[in-house]
Computed example of a mutant assay.
Amino acid sequence: MSSKVFYSTMQNKGLQSPLSKITRLLNKCDPKSKYGSKQLVAVKTHFGEYGNTAFLKPVYLRPVIEKLKQLKCNPFLADTNTLYVGMRTNTVDHLHNAFLNGFNYSTFQIPVIIADGLRGENSLDIPVDGELLDHVKIASDIYNADAMVVVSHFKGHELTGIGGAVKNISMGCASRQGKLIMHSISKPVVHKEKCTSCGLCAANCAADAIVFGPKAEITEACTGCTRCVAVCPESAIGIDWNESSDNTQRKMAEYAKAIHDHFENKIVYLNFITDVAPTCDCFPANDTPVCPDLGFLASTDPVAIDKASFDLVAKHSPDGIDPFGKIYEEIDPIIQLKHAEKIGLGSTSYEIKMVK
């Protein structure tokens, strides 16, 4: 069965604000039936790594927040700490990064919350009936929200081919330990040439899984919480990115289904096809866009909106074919969508409804 995907192009002959298009798209998803007075509504987005300029422009979030305020909700901007070491590894640096990129209280008059705690430790284990996973680890302050609007910058991705709504509610809503499960089949690793044996990793390890001999060593007692990655001042502990792209995508779909099912009908998805970089906004830089700015999409189906976004990018790329496939020849980005459809998250069959 086809899902409805509402689409508005960047064409603007009447010289109306593009922001009004976003409002109309959101209204097509019947927000009055999903968001109510005093509800804590997470506006899940990606704040962009410092140095990247392709991330979603903060101004595009304004109509979403204004609509939620009109419905007397209590919205907040939400993201989670990263698995890699960078400007978004812990909440203090992450908030500083977000504010520098324009995601701050003075811009929106709503709080900005890093949903998985100071160093990614605020996590809930949620059971799932997946093919690869029997539980997922979700950021507590995402899971405890009353509802959510998922605002995704559609783009390429070096591991999964594409990043859109499915990635935003899987990787983007997982705690650091959950991100490790999706990315790796092993525990963190110590780069001993960088280790100074300062002992901070062992002092912060809840499982007492780190010993010294004389450099840090991670034992079999490790639970994979990755707190050691966040606290190491020398970046001497890292991730073995050894999971296959196919399985990472399937795990993403199962994480996404857990979040989607949790919020039931209290979730709407918006994809923005602007500044479509070939790589993730987690990079501290970005390359030339692979297609022109195409506009905005809205749906209650995360699978359909990602498939529609993918097809639009392919159609409008310079040679009319999938530009991500040329960059990442060994990655099939549709695996995440096919698996998501298989487990009941949504449909790859969609009907575009144009909204002026």
Rank of each mutant, 00 (worst) to 15 (best):
L77K: 14
A308C: 13
R62Y: 01
I210P: 04
W241H: 14
A42I: 05
F212C: 06
K326H: 13
A206M: 11
C195Q: 05
Q249M: 15
G238L: 00
V189E: 14
F76N: 09
Y269I: 13
K326Y: 03
P214E: 13
V85Y: 06
D134F: 04
G238F: 00
C291D: 05
K155W: 12
I162V: 15
M252Q: 08
S175T: 13
P323D: 06
I138M: 13
K257W: 07
V43A: 03
P18C: 04
K342T: 12
A304E: 00
N74I: 15
S37F: 06
F272P: 11
I331T: 14
S309G: 08
L71Y: 09
K72Y: 13
F76C: 14
T23N: 12
A221M: 00
T279F: 12
P18F: 02
I113C: 02
N271C: 12
P75C: 10
E264T: 14
Q16T: 04
M148R: 03
E341K: 11
I327D: 12
T223F: 00
A221Q: 05
R62H: 02
E66I: 09
N265T: 15
F296H: 02
G178A: 10
P214G: 12
K38Q: 12
F55L: 00
R24T: 04
N52P: 06
S170C: 03
A285H: 07
G172L: 04
S299Y: 03
V128T: 01
T160G: 14
V150K: 10
Y84R: 15
A221S: 07
T223E: 08
D311M: 10
K72E: 15
V41A: 08
